[in-house]
Amino acid sequence: QSTLVVAEHADSKLNAATLSAVTAAKQVGHEITCIVAGADCKQVAAELSKVGGVSKLLVAEDAALEGLLPERVAPVLLAAHKQFNFSHIIAGATAFGKSVLPRVAAKLDVSPISDITGIQAPDTFVRTIYAGNAIQTLKAKDAVKVLTVRGTSFEPAEVSGGSAAPEPLTVEVDKNSSEYIGQELSKSDRPELTSASNVVSGGRGLKSGDNFELLYKLADKLNAAVGASRAAVDAGFVSNDMQVGQTGKIIAPDLYVAVGISGAIQHLAGMKDSKTIVAINKDAEAPIFQVADLGLVADLFKAVPEMTEKL
């Protein structure tokens, strides 16, 4: 009985979702092996070797793994599984984890379990369904449990106390079926949305992308990340990676300030576990006020600049 944690990384940096996956693996309770695959992962491997609780570290480095295409990464994970016969395979519930792990599960002929929020026993897991409107507890009977874990439900493991030495894993990578072309990543000096302690989010009430400038100013005062509702992304005000909600990012910061957001259930699914929720909206009947700890019924174009100035 042992667990494989699949590391995720970009620009030679380990993604925090991986550390949440390590915490989940610790809760499962078996020995933990971590695997990192990529075109260049020496730096990430060095970081991973420091993570406490990881007893083995596999490194699959190959130029063909650039962009981490699922058709190429899945065979690497399957090769590791063939060698060590893991009982659990775990990754963060990120775009990467969600792309690769179901592919691995299908090859093993088992049902993956997505986006878990709790572990009750090595075979019993908790997850949300219907956009967080119901909580399901389930028992997985398959021999191998393939899980993606929600970052907000598992504290990131400490990057200290570990001493696993990187061991190379060589796998023949099939390069035929797909090709990685490139990424256009949004650049920002502000904290990253999924790990920020404070988040300021805007909705349709902002009326335009230019008006998000008001939120950026407030965010700078609060050292906050900036998010958006689906309505604001669909309207083209801001880019998709800023979307908070059922199908966007699921976050749980200490402080969440919802500005001009009505509070559709799909949005609430992405932020209702925040510790303190503030809502600023001119419509007193907006559903966002039902989850807000502090609600201010006001014109955001007056209230937000005033708040920025007074903080």
Partner: peptide, 9 residues
């Protein structure tokens, strides 16, 4: 659509 923005394959 990926976590950090967009990717083309």
């Amino acid at each position: 659509e990926i976590d950090g923005g967009l990717e083309t394959i």
